[in-house]
């Protein structure tokens, strides 16, 4: 589903991604861990073209991200096409970024209504079902600021799911939450994984990575230091940097 080959990204003179290669198969959950500033968010943002890559190849579901190959040369995709491809990828942010001027239900409906141009009536039922699924059916008419962080994050997941994405990106979805609210969000993500959603999850929740993840990637300084099956990497890391990081977070 996601294939990265030597992906490079720089901000001005600073090279943030120094050749990231990884592959996520359809239905797989890949967790990405690593110290602050190692480029995890940047990589995730590259996957749905919120950032442009400067080198290497990055493709989602067989199609290059943000570019099109014609006659052996890369052409930048028009805005319309970039947006269409983004609509197939759900993204959940550390700070939720719900639309504060819309009710919870309108937040969840916003994607299908605006992007797919479906009538509000048509999508409302599905939206309510999604809210049910994340355990917030009774909050449909509340505004985001009236919810706790954990509730907001679950609405954000429902909002992304409303577009029926084939890939979900999570950027530290529980890092901004109080410890007692983390569990609800992880439970929603776990059930999503069990339904077979392809997920790329940046997280500091080692327990979640071990139990739900199919692959674990440890990033540091813009490179993939180590990757493998989560249990093996966590139990017996082969790299010293991984060992030090795991010791610090566990």
């Amino acid at each position: 589903m996601v294939r990265a080959e030597a992906v490079h990204k720089r901000f001005g003179p600073v090279e943030v991604l120094k050749g990231i290669s990884l592959e996520v198969a359809a239905g797989e959950v890949m967790c990405v861990i690593g110290p602050s500033g190692s480029g995890k968010s940047t990589f995730l943002r590259c996957v749905n073209h919120l950032e442009k890559i400067d080198g290497g190849r990055l493709s989602v579901d067989g199609a290059l991200v943000g570019y099109e190959e014609r006659g052996g040369r890369l052409h930048e995709l028009p805005e319309r096409e970039v947006a269409r491809r983004r609509s197939e990828i759900g993204m959940v942010f550390q700070h939720f970024h719900l639309f504060p001027h819309l009710t919870v239900l309108d937040n969840v409906c916003s994607g299908p209504v605006v992007v797919k141009r479906l009538a509000r009536r048509e999508v409302e039922e599905a939206a309510r079902e999604l809210l049910e699924k994340v355990g917030l059916a009774e909050k449909a008419d509340a505004y985001p600021r009236q919810l706790s962080g954990g509730q907001q994050q679950r609405v954000a997941i429902a909002r992304a799911l409303a577009m029926e994405p084939k890939l979900m990106l999570f950027d530290e979805p529980t890092s901004a939450l109080d410890p007692e609210l983390v569990g609800d969000v992880l439970a929603v993500m776990r059930s999503l994984a069990e339904e077979g959603m392809t997920m790329l999850v940046v997280t500091h929740e080692i327990g979640f990575a071990r139990e739900v993840g199919d692959q674990l990637v440890f990033m540091d300084g813009g490179v993939v230091v180590e990757s493998g099956r989560p249990r093996e990497v966590i139990a017996s890391p082969s790299e010293e940097r991984t060992r030090a990081f795991l010791e610090a977070v566990l």
């Binding site: 749905n48 919120l50 805005e79 319309r80 947006a83 269409r84 983004r86 609509s87 197939e88 990828i89 759900g90 993204m91 942010f93 700070h95 970024h97 719900l98 639309f99 504060p100 001027h101 916003s110 994607g111 605006v114 992007v115 954000a156 909002r159 992304a160 577009m163």
Partner: peptide, 26 residues
């Protein structure tokens, strides 16, 4: 907040849709 446009873009909204539906109302 720039996060608002990013969230809207990530749903697949185009630039003017992001403006009209998410940014301008706020």
């Amino acid at each position: 907040d720039a996060g608002q446009s990013e969230a809207a873009s990530s749903l697949g909204m185009r630039r003017l849709q992001v403006m009209r539906r998410v940014v301008l109302p706020q």
